[in-house]
Amino acid sequence: MSLTTSYLSSTKNLESIFNSIINARAPERFTTKFLEDLGFKSSTDRLMVGMLKALGLLDENGQPTQRYYEFLDQSQSKKVIAKGIQEAYEDLFNLRKDAQNMSNEDVKNKLKTLTQGQKGDRVIDQMSLTFRALCNYADWTEDPIDQNPTKSTE
């Protein structure tokens, strides 16, 4: 199963955190301390570290990956996040190619199915809200994974 179980309990700082990461020097290891140094001291913001790992920006040890460095390029960052979302939520995209356009209700219902009832409603809500917030941040103008040859690239 390829569905991240990482989620944020609050998405209000999501974009601010991304912007701060873009404007900061890449750390050797991305830790909650680094997040605090960026100005995000709330315990709800700490979950972002797990989310960054799920999106492929950090490895298991919290070290920035190649995708992290690509994310730092502001002309690419929202596309990089879109690619990360497609991998982190691959099972959702397998169910629906344009999962990023699903309503919150649809996402919740699909997550309930995909997690086989292993997650409570509150967690499903948080996972769904996190997915929607990430999708709203990401740039979906070109699908980085689905290289459909019939699609015009002009």
Rank of each mutant, 00 (worst) to 15 (best):
G120Q: 10
E15H: 06
E36R: 15
D146N: 10
A88V: 05
T113V: 14
S75F: 09
D106Q: 15
L111W: 07
E142T: 12
R96N: 11
K97C: 07
M48V: 09
L95E: 12
N94R: 13
E36Q: 15
T141L: 07
K33C: 04
M1H: 09
C135Y: 06
S2N: 13
A99V: 10
N109F: 11
L92P: 00
Q116M: 14
E70W: 06
R46T: 14
F40G: 04
G120V: 09
L58C: 03
G39C: 12
L47W: 08
S9R: 15
N23F: 01
N61L: 07
Q118I: 10
R29N: 06
N104C: 11
K110E: 11
L55W: 02
S77H: 06
N23V: 02
D91W: 04
M51A: 07
K79F: 04
Q63Y: 08
K79I: 09
K97M: 10
L52V: 05
S152L: 12
M127C: 06
F40Q: 06
Y7D: 01
T44I: 14
R29E: 10
E36P: 07
L57I: 02
N136V: 01
A88Q: 01
K41N: 15
S103V: 11
W140G: 01
Y137W: 05
L111A: 07
S42P: 12
K12N: 10
L111T: 04
K12F: 13
T32R: 13
D91T: 10
Q147P: 00
M48A: 08
Q66R: 10
S128K: 08
T153Q: 11
V49G: 05
R132A: 05
Y89H: 07
D125T: 14
T141A: 09
L35W: 04
K97A: 13
L52T: 05
I85Y: 02
Y68E: 00
L134M: 12
S152Y: 09
R46H: 15
F34S: 06
Q116V: 13
S75L: 06
L134R: 06
K97E: 13
E90W: 08
S128I: 11
